[in-house]
Design a protein around this nucleic acid. Sequence first.
DNA 1: GTAGGGTTAG
Length: 628
Amino acid sequence: MLRFGRDLSGRLLPSLSLVLAGNRATSTTTACSLSSGLPEAASVKAASPLPSISGGGQIDDEGDHHIDGGQRQNLAETAKRVCEAVLRRPRWGGFLLSEFSPSELSHPDCVRLVLCHLSSVKPLFSLHYLIWLSSHSDAAAADAKASAFLLEGLANAKAWKAAMVAIRSTNCQPDPPALESFLTRLILSKSGTPDEVLEAISLLKAHLCYSPPLAVWNSALSASLRAGRTDVVWRLYDMMLQSRIDSDAATAGYLVQAFCVDNKLDDAYRLLREVSRNGVVPDVVSITKLIAGFCKDGNYGKVSELIHLMIAGGCLPDIFTYQSIIHGLCRSGNGDEGFRIFKEIKLRGYALDLVTYTTMIDGLCKMGRMVDARNLWMEMVANGIEPNEYTYNVIIYGYCKAGDLTMAQKLYHEMCSIGFRESTVSCNIMIAGLCLHGRTEEALRMFEGMPTKGMKPDIITYNTLIQGFCKEGRIVKANKLYEKLLLVGLQPSTSTYTPLIQSLCEEGNMHGAVELMRCMKEKGLEPLVCTNDFIINGFCEAGKGDEGMAWLVNMLENNLRPQRVTINRLLEWLVNNTRVDDALLVLNATFGIGYTLQTSTCYLLVNQLCQENQGQAALQIKEILLSK
DNA sequence: GTAGGGTTAG
């Protein structure tokens, strides 16, 4: 703090000034002190709500302006009056012109004193003042210190757009440390968007020929990544290349992560290999993200390669890395291998944490291995790790799937009683469990109780219930839920329509089914392939094989693969309705995509062909069938 | 003032 008094007179102390700026509203200290004297300063302080321009400091004149003490005092007095006018007078422009000469106002010391004071109390006013001054005096310019205060004040106010106006449209010349400080604050500020960071960096380059150091580029890349803006990451990286900035391991790590977000795993992998060859190994976080990506794709060869690459590069995989691998394995149906790795890292002394335990318990639950899951739970607790909401949810889900609803409900109540809040997710899990075992009425009660407990049912809640009611053939109830979800403004998904359409087809309401299908397509939702099968089957059952035929043709035209039973069902209908020509057409089209017929359908077809004296065709079919 | 990982339908 001792340096504070000396440096206050002009040198920018970004962090220190920042702290001060926050307290300044009620303080009598300003970031910049006017020269000594000013006997009336005390009275101004007492009389006015303005933060005073108090004495006590010396202008650090660094020999660039040769002015004597009297001039200096006059400038200080002018600056003080300018500040008061700008802050208090409605139309201060005219007043200033009537009181002072343009040359006096644009004297660098005066500009600096005014800007540094205004910047500390009303940063936007300082910008307005500089713009106004520029329009009345060609000589008006903010020197490095004044510019630094201006930018700092605007940064304190998080007035990023205004700061860009200052850089673009005023004659201000902040020095590199001030620019670096400004950019860093913009990047780290929650209120600064990646677009603004990009704009600021471009502006600084275009207007001030300034290019930030690598650390600033890296933190800009990191911030854009966190904001999910990989487009900005790539543009920043382009600019880095143009500015001939040499990147480092951190840069490479961010680029790897950006590729992962963009789902360009091979590009990420190539980049990683390339930098590793040059001895640069990115951080464990970035490589872990890439590993997680390959796990998701089931590309375990690459996972293994990356682990070796990490070890060779001295960047050892950590518990996060292994957790990602175990998660990927469990999710892709390789839970046994996941469990093997889990036990392996435990043996090797990795400190297993709550997330890793939860991941493995979840994997075991999804494999239906509830005994192992429960044992792992108890092992975790014995190791001093308490389950949280996630852990409860995964094991409750497991018991629901396994049909042990009593245990699921017991754990649900336990979770609530130890203070974990019920959530939409936890309710969804219980509701699904209840529906899965035919207890839709209880599920419905739970759903209806959600709002009173402060929870909002989401699309998954509705879809789960709709599916549950459809499965029980209660399509009216399911439809009511569909209408309700639309009413509360939720966006239906494919899973909303699939069971509804299936049920309508099953009960022969083909008009309703087709109408719903149209409705979902209208919302940009692509029906599942099996939904087309339901429709074709429904038409056949309803005695409208012609329409079924039309849907089939449509499916084939769209390269959708119908189920074998659908084809057979349709052929059956066509043959039974003496539509042998159409049957042969269908047969021809579907043999092309590798289908065979059910034996019973073959008999039907051949029989019909013989009856119609089409022995030749019957023989052809027989040959085709024999060759299959 | 160290990052990053785990849960629900289909």
